[in-house]
Design a protein around this nucleic acid. Structure first.
Lengths: 246, 246
DNA sequence: AATTTTCATTTGTCAGACAATTAAACGTCT
DNA sequence: AGACGTTTAATTGTCTGACAAATGAAAATT
């Protein structure tokens, strides 16, 4: 673990990189204790605040955890699925919102990935997953539901669909795609009729998954994808028309 | 932007969260300048080093960038695809290596996702993507190639396949799935015969994509997935046998 | 032996200072 | 007046030293 003295700026970034590389290469195994801040400071020939800034960078990525006290210190952290989900969602959401990603592009990506899960979900779904999907579909029927709550339930439904594939890596990869769509979906106002169409498709998807009919589920997801894009298109058209007449 | 004085520990984490929430909610638009460190310190009633630790956390996630000088400061950063790729790969790689994810699980996820891209890639592939895929397939034929280099070329081939879908969101989501497999693949020793089989399938996939034959590409990817898993299974079996005899 | 106290270690936080960088304001010369 | 160098103010980057808080281990006490 060395740092390059030729690049004087951003010492904390260099130190963070050195430690990150050591962790990713496996040189520092999980739960290994890093040297104390004072020792790291001496080792890298920097002050303790600089070392601390580096450690905070790593903590932000859940690469280390810190503990106070006599036997405390910074430890290499086992990255949990939950932490990875969170980072994935944060990054995906910002990526979409900051780069003017069109609804069509994001939607295409999301449904392409979900359809990849469908055959596995059909094969491995448990009663628990089916129950969650039906519960969310039922929640979506409630008349007083706000658009936001409708979207949140939609996300929960699709997460259950993905989780039914029984592959945690797949669930992790899809978390970003599904969750990051929510802010985009929230821009849509759902009429009672369009809600009913979506709910119908959700029920059909659930039925197909329960019947372990992958082809049917794929077809329904394809329909849902097309309908969602159509809804978004209408919103955009209306917005443009309103802008012209104004 | 408030912080909770009831939880005394980890002030920098609380401050980072407050600013992160403000960015994610859109309250702080892209390129907006945050108050100076001294102002933030006063605002949150903490010292400047604490504020700095919070800012470094955000910098680690590429949420802000900092600039020195008279008009410098911390600015809300537009998250670039490149930055998002990097974080995605780091997180995915660690998730796989630290959680004893089986080769089968990771491989299943990867190929399920890639097969989701294939129809789009077949539809939209450009000459450039095809050229990259053929170039990597050709590189894989070189006799002196190390297993590591073979795997690296394999990753490059599959990234080109994914990029051919022409959906940057899809490319971003898949980056982790494809790249994080590399360390796992590196544990396999590829015989000349198994290499040839993989290369043949790569060529067939490229041909199918060029012919815009989505079904054929899907079939070939399915074959490649099965063959890869079979290879891994053999390695595991051999290793276990060696362990018993030893 | 069990419990309490003390203590050393380590992280968390603060205050103040100086260096490095940068752009704007200022002044000078043509 | 305009072009060009100089100063200056603002801001981040880094350092030093210090104290508080937590925490487990060792020592002392019952």
């Amino acid at each position: 673990m060395k740092i390059d003295p030729a690049k004087p700026a951003d010492l904390s970034a260099q130190i963070a990189k050195a430690i990150r590389d050591a962790i990713m290469s496996g040189a520092l195994p999980v739960d290994e204790r890093l040297p104390s801040e004072a020792e790291l400071a001496e080792k890298f020939s920097v002050s303790r605040p600089t070392v601390r800034e580096a450690l905070k960078r790593l903590a932000a990525q859940s690469l280390i955890r810190t503990q106070r006290g006599a036997t405390g210190g910074a430890f290499v952290n086992r990255l949990k699925y939950q932490d990875a989900y969170g980072q994935q969602i944060t990054t995906s959401t910002l990526l979409l919102s900051m780069n003017d990603v069109s609804f069509a592009t994001a939607c295409e990506a999301r449904y392409a990935l979900e359809r990849a899960c469908a055959p596995l979900s059909a094969q491995r779904r448990t009663a628990d997953h089916l129950a969650t999907m039906r519960a969310e579909a039922h929640r979506q029927c409630q008349p007083g539901l706000t658009d936001q709550a409708f979207c949140a339930s939609d996300v929960a439904f699709h997460r259950a669909l993905v989780d039914a594939a029984g592959n945690p890596v797949l669930s992790y990869q899809l978390a970003g795609a599904v969750e990051a769509m929510q802010p985009l979906m929230n821009m849509i106002t759902f009429s009672a009729r369009s809600r009913q169409r979506i709910i119908d498709l959700h029920v059909q998807i659930t039925n197909a998954i329960e019947a372990q009919d992958a082809a049917k589920a794929d077809q329904n997801l394809s329909d849902l994808s097309r309908y969602t894009q159509q809804l978004a298109q209408e919103v955009i058209t209306q917005r443009n028309t309103a802008g012209v007449t104004k």
